[in-house]
Amino acid sequence: MNTKDIVLIALFAALMAALGVVPQITLPLGVPITAQSMGVMLAGALLGAKRGGLAIALFLGLVALGLPLLAGGRGGAGVFFGASGGFLIGFVVGAFVIGLLFDRHKTQPAFLLSLIYILVGGIGVVYLFGVPWLAQIAELSLGQALVGSAAFLPGDCVKAVLTALIAREVRKAIPTL
């Protein structure tokens, strides 16, 4: 890990914070729809597994330190115990998995393939952590928690498509990333 890697990790952690300012909508269960999950997808797709995962981990570390950087101005160690705590942990793993899938290619993967990667890591993995956690915290069955979270799916799919398009152009502009 050289200085360039550290600076890029910091940059994408800051990008996560900046995306948190985009207004959020809170659903009845208390789980917010935010633009921040797009930051997770971008970090994985542009930085790869190690740097992408660390960027999100760094961002969450700052949140845990008490900076109100999560969407809606939430922060502090308390958020990790709330309804969306599992999704936050899933963010780190999701970015890592997206990066892992992208890292398998020496050159830019085909658009459809990169979209699938982003869907798998950015939605599949994130939900894998978030849904059981939500079920536990909100006293729901897994099925109920999944149905409750499904409200986010359309928005998350739109974010995945946006990310795939943006990542393709950015990688084209900076192939050495």
């Binding site: 550290i6 600076v7 990790i9 910091a10 940059l11 952690a13 800051a14 914070a17 900046a18 760094l58 961002f59 570390g61 700052l62």
Partner: peptide
């Protein structure tokens, strides 16, 4: 370094 850079990058 990463923490201070992040705060500066925002």
């Amino acid at each position: 370094l990463a923490i201070s850079l992040t705060l500066r990058f925002i």
